[in-house]
């Protein structure tokens, strides 16, 4: 995998708008053929990064290569090989959706008519409606169909489903999976965590214009804490003393704690000695990963204390939105604000 050429290679990217620093040394590498999740809160610099990758904006410093080419100097060559869905799709009020799809696809260099019609069908889009009559979700469908009906080898999707309903979200996930199977590379910017978890091979988390973490979800989970809940025959003693175990709450036979990725083995052994009746462990969700990086911001916004619940709610909503609930509830909020100091150490 690592021998594959990189579809997107970005290092030290900087971009300022007046006094605002949108990108502050951003790094990103997307391997050919993977679905790469690009995560960050609003204003973290996701859209700006994509626009630099498209050559719509010029970076102040740093290097960017898209499909091996300089996106500013050879924008059109790059564009012929990629398709882009903007976060805020604006259509021409007096052009129909079908006309907009054809326009965008043909300007990109051709359209697979059969695939276009199939996608219109799957997304349940009426292509005869005028641009001004579409809702946000339908405008997004127009851009998604135009992008996916092309044979572009790279798809840049900027929060493509923020206006879609749950059914359409599922269709979207299917379509992205098909694109991946067809060998295409996808950069999927989002703050819908469940979606990225379902689709992405690797993830980059950015914050304030800087990459704070990048890797596979497994790697990231390994580097963070797992939450364990157990019921034992005898009270599990000695857990607090173990290195890497945090936030132990003992309630008779029930115990609950968080443990660093590399220290799970020792902790489970202690439980085994106490006689395990039941054991539930939750891998850290992206929600928790995000909270580790953004926890201090939430705290600054007066979110102290309730973060765990809030996180769980958001997580549940996201899972519901995706039409499936995978049951990994995280109603504890172990680290949240507290662990924010550890953020950013991993790359």
């Amino acid at each position: 995998m690592t021998q594959e050429p990189l579809a997107i290679e970005v290092s030290g990217l900087q971009k300022s708008f007046g006094a605002t620093r949108a990108l502050d040394g951003l790094d990103l590498s997307v391997r050919t053929g993977e679905v790469h999740g690009f995560l960050g809160p609003n204003g973290a610099g996701k859209s700006t990064t994509l626009r630099v990758l498209l050559g719509l904006m010029r970076s102040d410093a740093g290097a960017a290569r898209v499909l091996g080419l300089d996106p500013w100097g050879r924008a059109v060559e790059v564009h012929r090989r990629l398709a882009y869905v903007p976060g805020d799709v604006e259509l021409w009020p007096n052009l129909s959706g079908g006309e907009a799809i054809d326009l965008l696809s043909r300007l990109r260099g051709g359209i697979d008519r059969r695939r276009r019609d199939e996608l219109i069908d799957r997304f349940d889009l009426d292509p005869r409606k005028k641009g001004r009559a579409y809702s946000k979700g339908n405008r997004q469908k127009v851009a998604i169909v135009a992008a996916l009906a092309s044979d572009a080898e790279l798809l840049l999707l900027d929060e493509p489903t923020s206006g879609l309903d749950p059914l359409m979200e599922v269709v979207f996930q299917d379509v992205v999976r098909e694109a991946k199977e067809a060998g295409r590379t996808v950069l999927l910017s989002s703050h819908i965590l469940a979606q990225v978890e379902k689709l992405a091979d690797r993830v980059s988390i950015i914050r304030r214009g800087r990459t704070v973490q990048s890797g596979t979800l497994a790697e990231m989970r390994h580097l963070t804490r797992t939450t364990v809940e157990a019921e034992t025959e005898r009270p599990a003693a000695g857990l607090e003393a173990l290195p890497g175990v945090h936030d132990v709450t003992l309630d008779g036979a029930r115990v609950r704690f968080a443990v660093d990725g590399g220290r799970l083995d020792a902790a489970v052994r202690v439980l085994g000695e106490a006689g395990v009746r039941s054991l539930v462990s939750h891998p850290p969700t992206l929600e928790e990963l995000m909270l580790r990086h953004y926890g201090d911001e939430l705290a600054a916004n007066g979110h102290q204390g309730a973060d765990g619940h809030q996180g769980a709610d958001a997580r549940t909503d996201a899972a519901d939105a995706a039409g499936t609930a995978d049951g990994t509830g995280t109603a504890d909020g172990t680290d949240g604000t507290g662990a924010a100091g550890e953020a950013g150490a991993v790359r």
């Binding site: 498209l54 924008a75 059109v76 564009h79 903007p86 965008l104 851009a143």
Partner: peptide, 14 residues
Amino acid sequence: GGRAESLLSTGITR
């Protein structure tokens, strides 16, 4: 109006 963005990310030059 934001409509140039999607066009200029296709194979059309500025």
